[in-house]
Simulated scan of single mutants.
Amino acid sequence: MSHNEEHRAHRVGWLRAAVLGANDGIVSTSSLIIGVAAANATQQSILLAGIAGLVAGAMSMAAGEYVSVSSQADTEKSDLALEAVSLEENQDAELHELAKIYEGRGVRPELAIQVARDLTMHDALGAHARDEIGISPGATARPIQAALYSATTFTIGGALPLSVALLAPEHRQIVLVASLSLLFLAMLGGLAARAGGAPVALGSARVAFWGAIAMGVTAVVGQWVGVIA
C-alpha cells in the first residue's frame, strides 16, 4: 500500500518573496496611478508616475529583500559557527543537550541518548542546527534568490495596472484600474493559497481586501491634494 504526501514547506522561501513582490507591484502601482489620476493629472503625468513607481518599487523590493535576507543569513552563519566551536570544546555537554531535546519530544531517555549519539556520529553540526537552533538545510536564507524573485514579480505585478492605465479611456481610467487590479489581486491570492495548500477563497479575499483599502486611501488623498493644489 503506497503512502504519498505532498508537503509544501519547501516552497515557503520563494513563495513568500514571489507573492510579496507581485502583491506590492499591483497594489503600489495601481494605488499610485489612482492617486495621481484622482488629483486630475494629465494622462502623461499619470503614466510617467506609474512607470517611475514601477521601476523604483522593483529596485526597492530587490534591495530590501537582499538586505533583510542577508541579515537572516548572517545570523544563521553566526549561530552555526558558535555551535561548531561548542561541539569541539564541549562534546559531552552537547551530546546530552541533544538527548534532552529528544526527551522533551517524548523519546525515552535511553533511546534519546542513543539517537543523539548516532546523529552526532553521522553529522553533529547538522543535528544541532536542525534540532537545537531550528535551521534546516532546505530553509536556509538565500538573499540573491529572494531579491530576484521580489524584483521580477514586482515588475510583473506592477505592469498589470500600468497596462490597464495605458489602454483605458481617460474617463474610465480609475474605475478600470481599480476593478482589474482587485481582480489581479484576487487571482494572485488564490494562486498563492493553492500553492501553499491553504483555502483559495480565503487567500483571494485577504489579498483583495487590503488592496482595496490601499487604493481607496490613495484615491482620497489624491483627490484632496487635487482640490487644494
Rank of each mutant, 00 (worst) to 15 (best):
Lys100Asp: 12
Ala192Lys: 11
Val164Asp: 03
Arg108Ala: 15
Ile133Ser: 07
Asp92His: 09
Glu83Tyr: 09
Ala124Leu: 08
Pro169Phe: 14
Leu162Ala: 02
Ile135Phe: 08
Thr155Ile: 06
Ala99Pro: 00
Glu83Val: 05
Thr155His: 13
Glu88His: 14
Ala124Glu: 05
Gly189Lys: 04
Gly126Met: 01
Arg117Val: 11
Leu183Ile: 07
Thr153Leu: 15
Asp123Tyr: 14
Ala146Pro: 02
His122Ile: 13
Glu94Arg: 07
Ser163Asn: 10
Ile133Pro: 02
Ile156His: 03
Leu183Glu: 00
Asn90Ser: 11
His122Arg: 15
Gly134Cys: 04
Thr152Val: 08
Gln145Met: 14
Val177Gln: 04
Val164Cys: 06
Gly157Phe: 02
Leu95Lys: 12
Ile135Asp: 09
Val175Cys: 01
Leu87Arg: 10
Ala73Asn: 00
Thr75Ser: 10
Glu76Trp: 03
Gly157Val: 04
Met61Trp: 06
Ala168Leu: 14
Arg142His: 15
Leu148Gln: 12
Gln114Gly: 07
Glu170Ser: 13
Leu95Glu: 05
Gly104His: 10
Arg105Gln: 13
Arg117Ile: 14
Val177Asp: 08
Tyr149Met: 11
Pro109Cys: 00
Leu98His: 09
Val115Glu: 01
Leu95His: 06
Glu76Thr: 07
Pro137Gly: 11
Ser78Lys: 02
Pro143Asp: 01
